[in-house]
């Protein structure tokens, strides 16, 4: 697919962005939990044109054995982009970018998983970006923590993530592909709400200290919104299961 042309303006005179959003508005987010059969846990996220599937396996026996740790589970993470997920085909060989993102995404999740309950095992998180539209590492983290929860892995809480950036001199929430490419800065953030910890923070571009502080506040506010969406997505699957189980129990009592 040919790359879309550079838009003349990223923000129009009324302060509206190319996709019709305000500066502090998220793209539409769709979350689904438990959509894969074989994985122990799975989740799917759509955020703008991002389409990301996450599968979690574990806790399971560590392979190769030498990576196992005596006092905790090893968390493993792979962030991967499908060759067809971007305008120009991506070489399927793992890129340096994917290796870096796998590391920072793993580090964003480590502190919420109760790894010390499962020594000598691994917990594997596979993030497959099927279509990429800016902010895919954050959407990946949002879905990954849902997939971990779906796998029944004990966690302190869910991690929510969202990026902010700077376009035409203004801080803007949740940049799309074009905004990321033609904007001035990108600041992805992952947040653990109750522990009040930022567990992923990266930045490229130029930001003043004030812009950084403002952007961080915007990102954390968005993470709060996303965090409640995550909780709803889990309820949507598990409240139904609970109701079905309760109904069955009632009929059994009657019989």
């Amino acid at each position: 697919m040919p790359e879309p042309k550079q838009p003349e303006k990223l923000i129009d005179d009324k302060g509206v962005r190319i996709d019709g959003r305000r500066l502090d508005q998220l793209r539409p987010i769709k979350l689904e939990v438990g959509i894969l059969d074989k994985a122990d846990g799975s989740a799917y996220i759509e955020q703008g044109k991002n389409k990301i599937l996450v599968g979690v396996y574990g806790p399971r026996e560590a392979h190769p054995k030498h990576i196992a740790l005596p006092d905790r589970a090893v968390l493993r993470c792979r962030y991967r982009m499908a060759p067809f997920s971007v305008d120009e085909r991506k070489n399927p060989a793992p890129s340096r970018r994917e290796m870096e993102l796998s590391k920072v995404i793993r580090e964003s999740l480590e502190s919420v998983v109760l790894t010390d309950l499962y020594p000598r095992t691994t917990i594997d998180v596979f993030i497959e970006v099927l279509q990429s539209d800016g902010g895919s590492r954050c959407a990946g983290i949002t879905a990954a923590s849902l997939a971990l929860a779906d796998a029944g892995i004990p966690m302190r809480e869910l991690v929510a993530a969202c990026a902010v950036g700077k376009i035409q001199g203004h801080m803007a929430l949740d940049l799309s592909d074009a905004e990321d490419k033609y904007g001035e800065a990108d600041l992805p953030v992952a947040w653990v709400p109750n522990a009040n910890l930022v567990t992923l923070l990266q930045m490229d571009g130029i930001l003043t200290i004030n812009e950084f502080e403002k952007g961080l506040t915007m990102a954390l506010d968005a993470c709060k919104t996303i965090h409640s969406m995550q909780q709803e997505a889990l309820k949507k699957k598990y409240l139904v299961i609970k109701e079905v189980a309760e109904e069955r129990e009632e009929t059994e009592v009657v019989a």
């Binding site: 920072v104 930045m203 930001l207 003043t208």
Partner: peptide, 8 residues
């Protein structure tokens, strides 16, 4: 100004 950041 800030031009790069990385948390680890």
């Amino acid at each position: 100004n800030i031009c790069a950041m990385q948390k680890g």
